[in-house]
Design a binder for these strands. Structure first.
Lengths: 218, 218
DNA sequence: TATAAATATTAGGAAAGCCTAAATAATTGT
DNA sequence: ACAATTATTTAGGCTTTCCTAATATTTATA
């Protein structure tokens, strides 16, 4: 049985190796986990001894099969709980992350699986992130940042890249929610801001925002 | 913010002071918390310094208003989660305690209150124990152990004293569930075992069992 | 009531997870 | 290529929560 701290390390290593490079380095981890690098080094040694990852001094770290499977299990729980909070308890999608960070460490496979069933075996969480199934399999969706689409192209908003509080609040405020159709009207040369159309309503969003909206283009 | 360990101490002190005497002693606590007495002494000092209880060396411990309120909050969460697990996720009542011991430490008043609402503001958990409301108020039910009832008296089974795994399993096996009517037919002089009637079905239960069934007699 | 038994506390230490400061390795710029 | 910079690790300490062994207090008993 792993500690909460160990679980958080595995989860973060997994997330970083997915988003950036294969091999994760110490300082990035320290930064993400709001801790200092000596603590990271120490923990990496420990997790390596437990055979959950491959760690080479000064060379970074990479989860092995077992470590990855545990990380996926935690992510599965996190996203199922987020779904529960939004679907059943009527939380807003920008309120659930912090609570799910606690709930993801509850240890009971039976609970996880029954929650999954109770929610109707969802494949996406409220932020559009895929929920790994019981076997740790993740549905790979074909998503493009809105920013990569062309003028007059249209797509469906299916997920966010950043789940930061401020970004999610921004989206709520502007009525941009998962599932809505967005069309690019024009792109401003100067600052790369975009004019978009949602429900026949046109407005501008910054490049920053456009890079954090994942779209599905048919 | 209190640690999980601190919360467990408060919860256990509260439970013991309710069931047995006002003032709780060190070794009983150590026993219940599966720890050793020096650890208890140490923690009591700490909680006393935090002004959650009154502790006098060699004299035992007693929660003050604040400590009691925190304890009730944890019990509230525990029993709400148990209710959730049984009502919504279809767990059996003998499976939920261990999981609820984890869930009771999740820190989010908003979550607790929304869960409460989602469950329809229940007043009893699956074991017949009262669920404190948001203000920490507990409905006091008038319950008597079945063993204290007289011959040919009838009552409704409304809760258990012991929530031990083996006892709950025993009840399930014998179809004794919360809400069912039980009548005492006779009492055996020799071992104090009882012949009871449920749904026109008569069978024997031991004194031990009868002492752990809480009844409501009209 | 003096002493034995039971109970509680103190003393000192361990593991986990964090920290700062110092040392070492890797990378980068010229 | 090698000095300067940056990243990483080692060394040593701190806090929390637990432990065992030793000591002190209370309670029970002769």
């Amino acid at each position: 049985m792993l500690s909460k701290s160990e679980e958080n390390y595995l989860k973060e290593i997994y997330a970083l190796s997915e988003s950036s490079k294969e091999v994760v380095n110490t300082s990035l981890l320290a930064n993400k986990l709001a801790t200092k690098s000596p603590s990271v080094t120490e923990m990496l040694k420990k997790l390596a001894k437990k055979n959950l990852l491959k760690y080479e001094k000064y060379k970074g770290v990479k989860l092995n099969t077992q470590g990855k499977s545990i990380a996926l299990g935690i992510i599965r729980k996190h996203r199922l709980w987020e779904t529960f909070l939004v679907d059943k308890l009527n939380f807003n999608w920008d309120e659930v992350h912090v609570i799910a960070e606690q709930l993801e460490h509850i240890q009971s496979d039976q609970l996880t699986d029954r929650l999954d069933e109770f929610l109707g075996f969802p494949t996406m969480d409220p932020h559009g992130d895929p929920i790994p199934n019981k076997k740790g399999q993740v549905i790979k969706i074909n998503k493009t940042p809105l920013f990569n689409m062309g003028i007059s192209e249209e797509g469906v908003f299916i997920g966010v890249k950043s789940s930061s509080d401020s970004f999610l609040k921004y989206l709520s405020k502007n009525n941009i929610s998962i599932g809505c159709k967005i069309k690019i009207i024009s792109i401003e040369d100067f600052d790369n801001s975009l004019k978009i159309e949602i429900n026949n309503l046109r407005f501008n969003i910054s490049k920053d925002v456009a890079q954090n909206l994942y779209m599905e283009v048919k």
